[in-house]
Amino acid sequence: MDKKLGKRFEGKVAIITASTQGIGFSIAERLGLEGAFVVISSRKQKNVDEAVQKLRDRGIEVFGVVCHVSNAQQRKNLIDKTIQKYGKLDVIVSNAAVNPTVATILETKEQTLDKLWDINVKAAILLLQDAAPYLQKGSSVVIISSIVAYRPPASMGMYGITKTALLGLTKALAAEMAPNTRVNCVAPGFVPTHFAKFITGDANLRRELEAKTLLSRLGTTQDMAAATAYLASDDAAYVTGETLVVAGGMQSRL
Rank of each mutant, 00 (worst) to 15 (best):
K85W: 10
N77G: 08
K88H: 06
N71Y: 04
L78V: 03
Q74W: 06
N71V: 11
I83K: 01
A72T: 04
L78C: 02
A96R: 00
K81E: 04
A103Q: 14
A97G: 13
D80Y: 08
R75Q: 07
R75L: 08
K85A: 07
Y86W: 12
N99R: 14
V93Y: 12
Q74S: 05
N99S: 13
L89K: 09
A97W: 10
P100F: 00
N77Q: 09
K85L: 09
N95G: 12
I79W: 02
V98M: 09
K88C: 07
V102E: 15
A103K: 14
Q84A: 07
Q73H: 10
V69L: 06
L78T: 03
Q84R: 09
Q73N: 09
N71G: 08
R75E: 11
K76W: 02
G87Q: 02
T104K: 14
N95K: 11
K81R: 05
I79R: 03
I92D: 04
I79A: 02
P100A: 00
V98Q: 12
N99W: 15
P100E: 01
A103W: 15
S94P: 13
D80M: 01
N77E: 11
K81P: 07
I92C: 06
I105A: 15
Y86M: 06
N95V: 11
S94H: 12
I83P: 04
D80T: 04
V98F: 10
K85E: 10
P100R: 00
V98G: 12
I83E: 04
K88T: 08
T104H: 14
K76F: 02
L78A: 01
K81L: 03
V98I: 13
S94N: 13
D90E: 04
K81N: 04
N71F: 01
S94R: 12
P100Y: 00
K88M: 07
D90N: 08
L89W: 13
Q84L: 08
I79V: 08
D90S: 04
Q84N: 10
I105F: 15
Q74I: 02
V98W: 12
I105E: 13
Y86P: 10
A96F: 00
D90Y: 05
I92V: 12
V69S: 06
N77P: 08
D80N: 05
Y86V: 09
A103I: 15
I92P: 10
P100V: 00
V91N: 12
V93R: 11
N71I: 05
Y86D: 09
R75H: 09
D90R: 04
G87A: 02
G87Y: 00
V98P: 13
I83F: 03
N99Y: 15
T82G: 06
V93D: 11
T101W: 03
V93F: 13
A72F: 01
A103N: 15
K76R: 05
V69C: 06
Q73D: 11
T82I: 07
K76L: 05
V93W: 12
I92H: 05
I79T: 05
N77Y: 02
A103G: 13
V102A: 14
V91K: 13
P100D: 01
I83G: 02
A72C: 01
S70V: 07
K85S: 07
T104G: 14
Q73C: 03
Q84G: 08
I83W: 04
S70T: 08
S94I: 06
I83A: 01
T101V: 13
K76I: 05
T82V: 06
V93L: 10
K76M: 07
L89Q: 09
P100C: 00
A97V: 13
G87M: 01
Q73W: 06
K76N: 05
